[in-house]
Design a binder for these strands. Structure first.
Lengths: 111, 111
DNA sequence: TGAGATACCTCGCAAGACGAAGTACATCAC
DNA sequence: GTGATGTACTTCGTCTTGCGAGGTATCTCA
C-alpha cells in the first residue's frame, strides 16, 4: 500500500531535513532509510529526491560536500544548517496543526 | 496561523466530499463551513474550490443542480454520489495511514 | 566480460493551488 | 436612488512540485 504523491507534496523537504538531523548522509542512503522507516509504504523517486536537495541547498537549509571514502560510486553528502533546523522545527509544528485540522475535516463524525 | 497550501494539496477533494456527507450544499456555504470547522486556520481560495467541484463532478464523485430558492445570488448545489462515498471511505483510510507514516518520518525521535 | 548494485544528474510534462479579474443579484445606509 | 457591501459563481494564466524517462560512472562478483 503506497501513499499518493499529492498527499506527500510539501512534506518532501521536511522529511529530508528530519533525516539529516540524525547526521550527514547522502541521497541513496537517505532514501533507503526513509523507505525503511515508512515500512516500505513510501519512498521518493530519484528525480524527486535530487530536485529536493537542490531546492533545499538553494534555500540554505542544507549544505553539501563530496565524500571520497567508501567503495562504489562517489557520494555527495548533505548536512543540515542552522536555518534548516529552524525550518524543521517550524515544519514539525505545522504538521501537528495539520493533523488536528484534517482530523476535524476529514474524519468528522465518520458517517 | 494558517497551513501552507502544499500541505493541504491532495486533501481538497476529500474535505469537500466529507462536507457533502452532511447533506447537499453549495460552494460558498461549504467553504464557510470548512473555515469554521478548521477554527479559521484554513479555507479554500475560491479558485481552488471551484476547480475542485469541476474535477469531482467530472470524475462522478458529485452531481450538481441549481437551487432557485433563497435570496441573493443563484446557488449551485452539490450532492455526493455513491462513487463519491466509496472514494471518501478510501481517502479516510489513506489519511490514517499517512498520519502513521509521516509521524514516523517527520516527528522521528523529535531531536 | 557482463550483469547488477550503488550513486548521481537533467529534461520536460502534468496536476493542483490560487491570484486576479469579472459577472450578477440583494440589502442597507445615506 | 445610488453606492457600498456581502453573497455567489466562473475563467484564465502562472507557479510549484512530483516524477517518468533517459543518461553517466564506479565497483563487485559470477
Amino acid at each position: 500500500m503506497s501513499i499518493s504523491a499529492d498527499i506527500l507534496r510539501g512534506h518532501t523537504d521536511t522529511i529530508i531535513l528530519a533525516q539529516l538531523m540524525a547526521g550527514d548522509s547522502y541521497g541513496y542512503e537517505i532514501n533507503k532509510s526513509i523507505s525503511q522507516q515508512a515500512g516500505g509504504a513510501y519512498g521518493f523517486k530519484e528525480a524527486t529526491l535530487y530536485t529536493a536537495f537542490k531546492r533545499l541547498e538553494q534555500n540554505g537549509m542544507i549544505t553539501s560536500y563530496w565524500g571520497d571514502d567508501g567503495p562504489g560510486a562517489r557520494r555527495r553528502y548533505y548536512a543540515i544548517t542552522e536555518a534548516g533546523m529552524r525550518q524543521l522545527a517550524a515544519d514539525r509544528q505545522e504538521w501537528s496543526e495539520t493533523k488536528t485540522v484534517l482530523d476535524a475535516l476529514i474524519l468528522k463524525e465518520e458517517d
